[in-house]
Amino acid sequence: MRILIIEDEVKAAEYLRKGFSENGFVSDVANDGEDGLHLALTGDYDLIILDVGLPERSGWSVISELRRKEKEMPVLFLTARDAVEDRIKGLELGADDYLVKPFVFSELVARVRTILRRGPLKQPDVFTVGDLVIDLVRHKATRANLRLDLTPKEFSLLSLLARRTGEVVSRTLIAEQVWDMNFDSDTNVVDVAVRRLRAKVDDPHEAKLIHTLRGVGYVLEER
């Protein structure tokens, strides 16, 4: 998977490149709009991460030019501008997603994965992580064949982590997906909720499945 990062802040571009390569992506960096457009037109990229405010040529202009030349690779906008009109403009120009700075890197990786995974991919109904089995259809979870007594919200939290097994899920995303709290909400509440979930899922067992990445989020996996 090749990703092109068009970002004028050198430090930001560098940490993005590093982060993506550690997550199994190959990435190239362009520091201005012209270079970025040139690379995007000539190279073969699976996805472009595009900043809006760029020297030489703005992000808006880069994407319009790409779409005009019928380059249909997915584009994810990164920007410090978060007015609703800006989001709409980005999406209208043909962007696939939009992330406002500052963001959590794991969130960006998750979104990139989602975009690249898009298409006719069938989600399984049952997830298995170690001896934990989550059945989305029958709405029940078992660990070591013992049924877990979960509240509806705890179940949807667990299934969110299960659907992204091995990925870090940020607290913001959890608040958004599980409780529909799509504004800056108190992430401490998420910590408490995860702690209570953990008490039911992990505490009785030797092998822990829910792991904390302090300051980032949570990941469900067998270690």
Partner: peptide
Amino acid sequence: SFYEALAA
């Protein structure tokens, strides 16, 4: 429901 855990 969001604050359920904290409240508990």
